[in-house]
């Protein structure tokens, strides 16, 4: 066991922490949420650093990074509330690359070099409608599993923007009849399922980042704000509740990292750990947002205070998949097999 980041992993964290600090301050986050939900300067920087394709195998022109590397980046992504559909794009490109490996007739290099943004639905869709698709309002291309068919299509003209709690670039999407099938049958389902668990794993890591920063904001406020002649952080009622959150955040971080680590090191447990990591991080990020917002008293709800940005995203980023309970259903499916009477 070694829970320390390697030198390479630390460098990765430092690099992205610096990129996000420069390009995703809360002023940019606020501007993006009153616009399209993406910041183009940030997105361009992410594309140029190779962040989108870093998880694609090197033989397909990617960076050959492990899931754990992507999770470390996702933590920073969440920490800075980055207005960019990075996780969806990373997972979608990995999915495409896996299909090329699997012999699909697909010109991946063309797509990857075109600079076009690919996203995917993360929930099973019914009929031709896919709702609340992550990045759906700003991506160019979407991957959708429809029954046993994995389809790809251009989003332009098939989407409706969804204003939402977290200022995310979400869209309801109608799958066009002429969408291109790139895989079908069990192969399509398996590939899509892997992508879904990868998305859950990385979104879990991003939610850890949201919770971690939300806690820091609350702690900083509790140290500065005085009431009854002392910093409010000196009241056990305030301090102890923050201690509970800090404990849960550490647990959520360990679980999210363990899940991503398992993708290559302990693959039999990856799906279960990814669903666990997502569910626990979602609950923890919410708790952190709630607690830190309330530490601020009346200021917590004011639009100009940053904590409300974190509170809203703790809910919205997770809700793109669903409530934590729906991820617990996946945990149960992994542990006990299917067979619930839903």
């Amino acid at each position: 066991m070694n829970l320390r980041l390697s030198a390479d992993q630390q460098l990765l964290v430092d690099t992205f922490a610096s990129l996000y600090r420069d390009l995703s301050p809360t002023s940019v986050v606020r501007a993006a949420e009153s616009g399209s939900g993406i910041d183009n300067k940030l997105w361009t920087a992410l594309v140029e650093t190779g962040a989108i394709t870093m998880g694609v195998p090197e033989e397909h022109g990617g960076g050959g990074a492990e899931m754990l590397d992507l999770a470390l980046v996702a933590e920073q992504h969440g920490r800075h509330l980055a207005p960019a559909p990075l996780i969806e794009a990373q997972v979608a490109t990995r999915l495409l690359a896996s299909l090329v490996d699997d012999g699909a007739a697909l010109d991946l290099s063309d797509l990857l070099s075109s600079g076009r943004v690919v996203t995917l639905t993360v929930r099973p869709s019914s009929g031709s409608l896919a709702t609340l698709v992550p990045g759906g309002w700003v991506a160019d291309v979407a991957l959708v599993l429809s029954g046993q068919r994995l389809l790809i299509f251009d989003l332009e003209g098939h989407r409706t923007k969804v204003d939402n709690t977290g200022g995310l670039p979400l869209a309801d999407i109608t799958v066009p009849a002429d969408a291109t099938e790139i895989a079908s049958g069990p192969r399509a389902q398996t590939a899509f399922s892997v992508a879904r668990f990868e998305w859950l794993s990385l979104m879990g890591a991003a939610l850890v980042g949201i919770g971690e920063r939300a806690l820091e904001i609350g702690v900083d406020y509790a140290r500065e704000r005085k009431a009854f002649g002392q910093p409010i952080g000196a009241f056990q009622e305030v301090a102890h509740r923050l201690a509970d959150v800090a404990t849960a955040i550490d647990g959520a971080r360990l679980l999210a990292r363990e899940a991503a680590w398992a993708a290559s090191a302990d693959p039999d447990r990856f799906h279960q750990l990814a669903a666990m990591g997502f569910a626990f991080a979602a609950e923890t990020a919410r708790a952190a947002g709630y607690r830190s917002l309330h530490v601020h008293g009346g200021y917590g709800s004011m639009a100009e205070y940053d904590i409300q940005l974190y509170f809203r995203r703790a809910w919205a980023w997770a809700a793109q998949y669903g409530p934590p309970e729906s991820a617990y259903d996946l945990v149960a499916d992994q542990r006990y097999g299917l067979g619930a009477e839903r």
Partner: peptide
């Protein structure tokens, strides 16, 4: 085990147990 509520309760308990173990 066919009851969704039972499955969620168990899955949550198993998840929290994993966190206890990791900490």
């Amino acid at each position: 085990l066919r009851d969704p509520a039972v499955r969620r309760t168990l899955a949550r308990a198993a998840t929290e147990t994993e966190v206890s173990s990791l900490l």
